[in-house]
């Protein structure tokens, strides 16, 4: 079965699903499930015109900012925790506790500290992104094969060199796996952050559409959020594919050798 053939089969279910949705909703009288035709019309109108700058762009901006901050902070702290067991032991109780707080519960906190707007939302998103990256970076750094480090030491590499040339590349697969989770959590935080008290943003938009009973708009918002999730994930997968080509090959070879 070729890759193209597999992709072809994969498309079948979505196509069938959307076709059914279209057809079944066409004559719909239920207010909750408007015809797909109307939803799509609303989708185009809203996201490409009226709400693009007021809601879509700010939310995307918050997401990207929060992602950047959270990833950098997560990698830095995670590396420290991976390299320094004592630091990790001392700081873990606090990080584990904050990590256990559901993102939504932190929204009122963000509102108290920062009010509404860019700072609050970015703060929340960074937090949501930070923890999965922290966990996976720590694990990745701790799991670096000691032989790599011995090799580097035997050739006289300084600590900084070992960190940059050995530890980070070796931990990269796990760090990137954490990024995947972080993107999902970050996007959810982006939506949640303005569902409560904001005046703009994706989350605000769909809640507002719902309370104003503008159903096609609500559906359009839902689809847009789904689309953003899909795009973010796809972008990530492409990046990961390029960066970790070596990892796939290495794992395949290592597993084959073990099975032999």
């Amino acid at each position: 079965m070729t890759r193209l053939g597999q992709a072809g089969i994969g498309i079948v279910v979505p196509v069938v699903f959307f076709s059914l949705w279209w057809v079944l909703s066409e004559g719909s009288t239920s207010p909750y499930f408007p015809p797909l035709r109307r939803t799509l019309a609303a989708f185009l109108e809203i996201w490409f015109f009226s709400r693009f700058f007021t809601d879509l762009l700010p939310s995307v901006g918050h997401f990207l900012s929060g992602l950047a901050i959270g990833v950098v902070a997560g990698v830095v702290v995670g590396t420290l925790m991976g390299l320094l067991p004592r630091f990790s032991r001392d700081v873990s109780p606090m990080t584990e506790f904050v990590r256990a707080i559901p993102t939504a519960a932190l929204v009122p906190l963000g509102l108290i500290l920062f009010g509404t707007g860019f700072v609050m939302e970015t703060f929340l998103i960074s937090l949501a992104v930070f923890f999965p990256i922290l966990v996976s970076t720590t694990a990745g750094v701790r799991g670096v094969d000691p032989v790599y480090l011995e090799v580097a030491r035997s050739y006289g590499l300084s600590f900084a060199d070992r960190l940059w040339h050995v530890i980070i590349p070796a931990a990269a697969p796990q760090i990137l796996a954490g990024c995947r989770v972080a993107i999902a959590f970050g996007l959810a935080a982006t939506v949640i952050a303005n569902m409560v008290a904001s005046g703009s943003g994706l989350g605000f938009f769909i809640v507002d559409a719902q309370t104003s009973f503008r159903l096609p708009d609500m559906w359009a918002g839902l689809i847009m959020i789904g689309l953003l999730g899909y795009l973010a994930n796809t972008a990530f997968v492409l990046v990961e594919h390029r960066l970790l080509g070596w990892h796939r090959g290495w794992r395949g070879a290592t597993q084959a050798a073990r099975a032999a």
Partner: peptide
């Protein structure tokens, strides 16, 4: 080193 498969960096 003895473990050639672990002394070469896979990336």
């Amino acid at each position: 080193f003895q473990e050639y498969n672990r002394s070469l960096l896979p990336w």
